[in-house]
Simulated assay, not measured.
Amino acid sequence: MTDHRMLLVHAHPDDECINNGATMARYVDEGVGVTLVTCTAGEMGEVLVPELSYLAYEEKGGLGEHRRGELDEAMTVIGVTDHRFLGGFGRFHDSGMAWHEEGHAIPAEEIPDNAFWNADLTEAADELVKVIREVRPQVLVTYDQFGGYGHPDHIQAHRVAMYAAQLAAVPSYRLELGEPHDIAKIYWTAMSESRMRESLRELRESGDTETFKGMEPDGKLPPFVTPDELISARVDGRATVQRKMDALAKHATQVEQDGHFFSGAESGHSWWAEEYYRLARGTAGTTGADGFEEDLFAGL
């Protein structure tokens, strides 16, 4: 084990594998302490397994408990032994979402009373302050201010993570939550524009018009794609991408086993092995030839 510690804050089970699965696996292998905090159980997600359709929120319910098991299995594959739900399982409920005509997520018209989107920001942040002061990470990973694609729970996870990081460092703030701790580096997840365009071009040239349907190599890209000049770090996960994909497959209710996540990986067009980050706080360390940090702990 090293003395390095990383904290990741995500909205629902499966978000961690999609965004950071290869990164988590890499750092687990390097002996870094990796802690995952998931803010909701994803109770209002889609159910892509027909025989489990009864778990849907609008049916009998129970999807959150099922996804809790999926997360356990996924983290076993990755090797993360410290994964928690913010405030404990069930404290904050999935908020659901709707789609805007411009192609990004927005809050749904009806939101559960105990939805994460409706949570008091300080109350939710204090739950994370306790974790920060206990784990004492040097690196925090979460979403950008838009939550990648506008999902209200992703946006709230960003707000909670950023506010909690600030509160946790205040020497006089709620000392019963633990000894103050200042996180050295905070990263927001990102997807590289150049890598996305390259992948789209390969897909379209191969005759695949379904994967990332509606997106074209030289066209307008959705908000979760980040211009390369805004990206600070790239983690090379080629050695751990298979664990990432195996872990993602454990989230079976959320990810089609023959969908673009896996067909992309098998086709060679996938960029799932490379995970990109924007440095939101702290000082960048040594960069590689392409100008990206290759290690999120660089400079520490």
Rank of each mutant, 00 (worst) to 15 (best):
V235Y: 09
P223E: 02
F212M: 15
V225G: 12
A249N: 12
R243D: 00
V225D: 10
R243F: 04
M245R: 03
S232C: 03
L248M: 12
K220S: 06
H260Q: 13
P222N: 06
P227N: 03
G207A: 05
K220H: 10
F224Y: 15
E210C: 07
Q242D: 14
Q242F: 08
K213T: 01
V255P: 05
F212E: 07
P223L: 10
D236Y: 02
G264L: 14
G219T: 02
P223W: 09
L230Q: 12
G219E: 02
E210I: 08
T209C: 15
S232V: 08
V255W: 04
G259N: 04
T211P: 10
G237P: 01
I231H: 09
M215L: 03
E216S: 14
V241M: 10
M215Q: 03
E216I: 13
D258A: 04
F224D: 14
R238S: 14
V241G: 04
K220D: 15
T226S: 14
E229P: 08
V225P: 15
Q242S: 11
T253P: 01
G219N: 07
H260M: 15
E216H: 09
D258H: 09
D228C: 06
A233E: 05
F262S: 00
D208F: 12
A247D: 04
T226I: 12
F261I: 02
E205T: 12
V241E: 11
S206R: 11
K213N: 10
E210N: 12
L230D: 07
G219V: 03
S206P: 10
R243S: 03
D246K: 06
A239H: 13
L230P: 11
G214I: 02
E216C: 09
D236F: 02
T240P: 11
A265E: 15
F261C: 03
L221I: 04
R234A: 13
D208S: 09
R234L: 12
G259Q: 03
V255L: 03
E216Q: 14
P227D: 07
I231N: 02
R234V: 13
Q242E: 15
K244Q: 07
K220T: 10
P227Q: 06
T240H: 05
D258K: 14
K244M: 01
H260F: 15
E205W: 03
V235H: 06
P222V: 03
M245Q: 11
L221G: 08
G264C: 05
G237T: 06
F212G: 05
P227I: 07
R238W: 15
Q254E: 06
Q257M: 11
S232N: 04
Q254I: 00
D228Q: 09
V235S: 06
F224P: 15
P227C: 07
A249D: 12
T240E: 11
T209G: 14
R234H: 11
Q242R: 13
G237Q: 05
V241T: 10
K220L: 12
K250R: 09
T240A: 00
A249T: 04
D236G: 06
F212C: 08
H251G: 01
K213M: 03
P223G: 03
K220R: 13
E229Q: 14
E229S: 09
I231Q: 07
E216D: 13
K213C: 04
E256M: 05
K220P: 13
T211A: 05
V241S: 09
K213F: 09
